[in-house]
Nucleic acid binder design. Sequence first.
DNA 1: TATTAATTCTACCTTTAAGTAGTAATTATA
DNA 2: TATAATTACTACTTAAAGGTAGAATTAATA
Lengths: 137, 137
Amino acid sequence: MQLSNSSQYAIRILAYMADQKDSKLMNATELAGALYIPYKFLTKIMTELVKVGLVVSIRGREGGYKFEKKTSEIMVSDILDIFNDSIKDEQCVLGIGFCNGLCKCALHDQWMEPKLLLQRMFRESSLEDIAGRGCKI
Amino acid sequence: MQLSNSSQYAIRILAYMADQKDSKLMNATELAGALYIPYKFLTKIMTELVKVGLVVSIRGREGGYKFEKKTSEIMVSDILDIFNDSIKDEQCVLGIGFCNGLCKCALHDQWMEPKLLLQRMFRESSLEDIAGRGCKI
DNA sequence: TATTAATTCTACCTTTAAGTAGTAATTATA
DNA sequence: TATAATTACTACTTAAAGGTAGAATTAATA
């Protein structure tokens, strides 16, 4: 019952970037060092984020990453979607494909409330919202 | 963001068993057939459940499985614990080892509410409670 | 006692997530 | 233009989850 490492890392990276006062370019070495994420794994994740258009990368010397979209427009749920890690409506907590009102799983009703809360939390929290919360790791 | 297959299967198996009116012995073939779970994988899971004392097994002809404890005393959280799938207090949603009041992750506060709901749901739902809910799959 | 139907054990196979390594491509700057 | 610093690409390795196969063990019953 947890997020994948990729999602966790991605959220931490983006929240860290969003927290930088000036929207300066940040490079992989810096991010990996600050966030204790394996460098090579971090660059792999960043490349994903570039591909989906959340951030842009500047290659070459003095290069790095910066946001493509405004941090107020990037929701945590967007990040989870990239790594197939979201909580969609169709997903049954017990893995039953056709769990719905007619034929539902044994936990369907109890699951509904926390599920809705989770969905809301992920969908309504933007990077701007969460940046700067807690410690910077 | 989901339970492991083992946990999902185990919950479905035990809920199904709990739903049988007479607490008769149920064998692996029957359970696998009814619940569309691979037979060999099901027996592997059942052996786990026997080892931790949730069910007893009767070997040999006319054998099968039945509950060791009362279904009102088996909580869903007990099942999740077996497969290292629970939502413990220490677990940070972003995987930070020391996420707590002093140094917390960016999602700490938002995560708190759904987390508590999930914990409560798992901890307070017994097999007796959920048996017979929804369809029998 | 032999047979049969059941669980259990051991070992293996497959797939996926997680992480690593090396090199190519790019670009600012000296 | 050469160099150094950066991201991107390709391919590999490792570990864990998920699942399979077959033989051993157990016990009821004919």
